[in-house]
Amino acid sequence: MDFLISVLERNITPTEITIIENSFFLIISLPIVTTLTGFMRHVIGLKSLSVYAPIVVTFAFYQVGFIDVDADSNFLRGIFFGLILYVIVFLTSSFTYSLIKPLRMHYIPKTTIVMISVSIVIIFTILLGTLFFDRKGLIYLDIFPLLMIVTLSDTFVSTLSRKSFEQTSLIGLQTLIIGILAYGFLSLREVRTFALEYTAVLILILVVINFYIGRFVGLRLTEYFRFSDILLKEPDDRPTKKNRKK
């Protein structure tokens, strides 16, 4: 990063440097989130709705955290408003989808209907939220995180068309956990400093981790629970039985 800035240095102002740093950090954050998603999937065993969903959750939460800039507790604020928005989008999508599911419709128009319902509900939420939070809350919300969260309804619909509501909720919850963890990680000042100062090292670490996860063949953490019956069996009980019979 320093190298890039030094190249541009002659005609760059300190404000511009901050802007570049911010954009750069957000961009390099993308593979960090997907690395975490991959880790959670293959090593821990948490599923996410798609590769894109945890990214959306992370950045939406991240941006939402900036509401009312004077506050110190950006992180909790992000979690709070982010969660509200996420749950509202999920419930509205599921509800509308369940209503129009029996109708014979093409996929995109169907998703659009769902998205219309989500948009209406979100607008009302912002209006109501503004009233309740004494004008300090949701009205300051940046439009981009909002748009991103609304587009999640597409992901929800596509999962709902293949899986039951219960299964989708469960995966939705897991996606949320991954997103919140990623958001928490990226909110750490040390991570940001490290990413900006040792960019090359960070990229190298990401590549190495992903090659490792990519070739990982061990059991996932959740599989240790799933197969606990087999894993807790007396390892030698079958062979000895056989030997006795012979």
Binding site: R215, G218, L219, R220, Y224, I230, L231, K233
Partner: peptide
């Protein structure tokens, strides 16, 4: 218990290994 899991672990096929 851990030793038992350690031994049995090698007998079970998980999703990662199934695919790769």
């Amino acid at each position: 218990l851990l030793r038992r899991i350690g031994k049995n672990r090698k007998t079970v096929l998980g999703l990662n290994e199934r695919y790769l």
